[in-house]
Design a protein around this nucleic acid. Structure first.
Length: 253
DNA sequence: TTATATGTTCGATA
DNA sequence: TTATCGAACATATA
């Protein structure tokens, strides 16, 4: 998403913005604030912290974009507004960038600084920059299920539902295993694996639903057989309110 | 018709 | 006061 935004929007003068969400669910700033921050300006750079994307504007402000569950970006031309577009940026060269979001859990917002934003939201460092020490410190004394802790964006940001399942499968850990009962070695293995997953997913330009062939994400379905475990069909449960898939033979409580 | 889906926030409870 | 849990949000698809 960050790279797509860069290729679609960087260093192009913004002519106009369009709002396509009548109830304004996705706008955390008012129309006028967004308009005034963007029109006549350019995006100069981007930064990502976990699932939070920031684009620096030539006037010193930043646009924060969060994609929720169904958010997406799509460059388009006039007269074919992509389905579920909630917000669009029109550039002076005639190109347009749509923020699409079927379920409207995403968010568009103008902010002053990334630091104050992350502090207010108590957002952690990006997963890829998280040290084993901080990861262990953040998890080891919690009483909750490990999967629930992994999904918490405080301390280390970026692990979502499929990545949590992916790393727990790879490490052979049951999602309901209490944080307290995990060893430091297990936590280090989880962090290592999470970074590996994220790096590969980014390198492959992975989109949800189109994962590298060997990813466990391709087998997140009740009853399906993972080739490495032909005698232990994938089981679905709910952990931390989220659909969770495991191979029972490999991930025991 | 019902269950499910890539996420975060908020109120209630312990 | 703090940690944890579950519901809520909005909407399409199977």
């Amino acid at each position: 998403m960050r790279r797509y935004f860069e290729s679609a929007a960087l260093n192009k003068k913004i002519q106009a913005v369009e709002f396509h969400d009548p109830l304004n669910k996705v706008f955390a700033s008012s129309h006028s604030v967004i308009q005034e921050a963007l029109i006549g300006q350019e995006f100069q750079s981007t930064k990502r912290v976990g699932k939070f994307l920031f684009a620096a504007i030539s006037n010193g402000l930043l646009l924060h974009i969060h994609f929720g569950m169904t958010g997406d970006l799509e460059l388009y031309t006039a007269n074919n507004l992509p389905r579920f577009t909630r917000f669009a940026i029109v550039f002076t060269d005639g190109s347009k960038l749509a923020f699409r979001d079927q379920r409207k859990f995403g968010s568009i917002e103008v902010i002053d600084s990334i630091e104050s934003f992350t502090q207010e939201r108590k957002l952690g460092t990006d997963l890829l920059e998280t040290s084993p020490e901080n990861f262990i410190k953040a998890i080891s004394k919690r009483k909750m299920a490990i999967k629930t802790a992994l999904l918490d964006q405080k301390n280390y940001a970026g692990i979502g539902n499929w990545i949590a399942d992916e790393m727990l499968f790879n490490c052979g850990i049951h999602p309901e295993h209490k944080c307290l009962d995990l060893t430091e070695e297990q936590l280090i293995a989880l962090l290592d694996d999470a970074k590996k997953i994220v790096r590969e997913a980014i390198n492959q330009d992975t989109h949800y639903g189109e994962f590298p062939e060997h990813f466990f994400a391709n087998f997140r379905k009740e009853g399906i057989l993972h080739p490495e475990h032909p005698n232990s069909p994938v089981e679905r449960m709910v952990v931390g309110g989220r659909g969770t898939f495991i191979v029972p033979e490999k991930q025991k409580l």
